[in-house]
Amino acid sequence: MSACGLCALLLLLGTWQVLVEGALVRRDEELGAAVRRMAPPEMPAEALSDLGNLEVALPLLAVAMTLSLLRPGGRRWWPVACYGAAVVLMVPLVLGLKVWTDRAGPSGGAGFYPSGHAATTAAVLGGALLLLSGGLSRIARRAARALVVILVVGNGLGLVWRGYHWPLDVLAGWCLSVLLLCAAFAAARHRGPGDRLPRTDRIRPHDGRMPADPDPPRTRRTPSAGS
């Protein structure tokens, strides 16, 4: 099973369990209480949870989009549009799921499933990585992937440590962002409307031979004196 398929399955399972208040929800709340008991000091936990704030995520995404557009090679606008659309589409999807499931948070209230902060962090950092990884060396790509994973997981832990979300809320936010990034990645692999090669790029390279004339002109025969 692919990562996208697994995330879709987990999102469906988690949403169903939250709606019916199933056994997975009770286990999730027990896990959340255990994780909070192991929380680090407030300052680092709060800093990690803040990675999903729009004040942090949107400037980061804007920088990644700008760098992608400025990279040599041209025709980068379509991937930028695809990943930007994925982040924009994430907002109504998260809000719709929050209203539909109406799950209470660790500190009370309602509308905590899925975590918007977790989804924002994963979508923005994942989208930035996909936009910029093409211009990095193999070692740099591996380091960037590791950094993204550390920040995304750290953000999720920070949200649970501070009592802002249950672990299942965070997992659902991650799964939703992965599904959106998979869709954006598939769309970005195709050229966008109007994103075509210039005419000069479509000319086949000349191999040094004269092109064959498909219809050579007929040589007119000069009439002889006896004709």
Rank of each mutant, 00 (worst) to 15 (best):
L168E: 04
V170E: 00
A144Q: 00
G154L: 07
I150H: 13
R142T: 15
L171T: 07
V148K: 07
G163Y: 05
G163T: 09
R141H: 15
G135F: 14
Y164I: 10
D169P: 06
L136E: 13
L132Y: 09
L130T: 13
G163L: 07
I139C: 12
V148N: 08
G156I: 00
W161M: 02
V149Y: 11
V149W: 14
L131H: 04
I150S: 15
G158I: 04
G135W: 10
S133Y: 15
L168N: 04
G163E: 06
L147C: 10
H165Q: 02
L171A: 13
Y164W: 15
A146D: 06
P167C: 09
V148S: 09
D169Q: 04
L136I: 13
S137N: 02
V149T: 15
L147E: 10
G156Q: 01
P167M: 10
G163F: 05
W161E: 00
S133M: 15
A146V: 11
S133Q: 14
W161P: 00
L131V: 05
G158T: 03
D169S: 13
G135Y: 14
V153C: 08
V153K: 01
I139D: 12
R145H: 12
G154F: 02
S137V: 03
S137H: 02
L147Q: 15
R138V: 13
G135R: 14
G134Y: 07
L151Y: 04
D169G: 04
A144W: 06
R138N: 10
G158F: 00
L151M: 11
L147F: 14
R138C: 11
P167D: 11
L136P: 15
G134A: 06
L159R: 10
R138T: 15
L132D: 05
L131S: 06
L159D: 00
A140T: 02
L136T: 10
A172W: 01
R141A: 12
V160E: 01
D169E: 08
G154Y: 03
V170G: 01
P167I: 13
A143S: 13
I150A: 11
V152E: 08
S133K: 11
V160M: 00
V153F: 09
G158Y: 01
V148A: 13
I150C: 15
L130N: 10
L151I: 07
G156M: 01
A144M: 05
L171D: 04
L130E: 12
G135H: 11
L157Q: 03
A144N: 00
I150Y: 07
L151N: 09
L131G: 06
A146C: 08
I139Y: 10
A146K: 06
